[in-house]
Amino acid sequence: MPQYTLRQPLDPDSVFLPESPSQTAGPYVHIGLALNVAGLPERDHEIANVMAGTNAEGQRIHLRGLVLDGNDIPVDDVLVETWQADANGRYVTDFSFDNAFNSFGRAAPGMGVDQDGWWSFTTLKPGRLPHPDGPEMAPHINLMIFARGINIHLHTRMVFDDEGEANATCPFLSRVPAERRPTLIAKRVEDSENGEPVYEFVIRLQGRDETVFFDF
């Protein structure tokens, strides 16, 4: 069925301003956004890397990740933010520490036990969710990457290697050139934490097997 799309400002009479330009988050981003990594005392509530409590509905998983620079050196001062659907494929937009699951999280190496540039999230395996162009998208986690040397944050999207069928029919993934698609696939590893599955995802900022980054 054909689709008609009209884009217009909410108030057509309004002015038009340039967006504030981005600047690097710098090496001390943790002071502001990951206090314990900087060595600062935490406030009552900090947005962090445990997005799913033990009472969250769905499969709890652990995601371990690494960001590598063009020389294959781990970016150990990175800050990673996530945005992902719950087990039913819905975004929890109302962030709260009372929620069993939050769609938004933040992680950095040195948060908890993660060392040598590794960061981690405790979250849920997301459900599939609709795409305006047709079939449902594969389960995925949207990631934002901030660090010293990154002038404007990078957006990428991770899918799971044990979702082969969903990945094969995903209308989003199908637009990514086939040879670069593997850069978006997290691998389930042998290891488990409390009996819960563990996935690993390596992001390459540059070079051979450079991760696909998106503009939207």
Binding site: G70, W83, M137, G149, N151, R157, V176, Q206
Partner: peptide, 24 residues
């Protein structure tokens, strides 16, 4: 920025889904 900048072009998403237009 030299070793931390992607060399490939960013891939444009022309049809945004809830994954791009929603937020916390």
């Amino acid at each position: 920025s030299v070793a931390r900048s992607p060399r490939q072009a960013l891939m444009a998403i022309q049809t945004p889904s809830a994954s791009e237009i929603s937020g916390p």
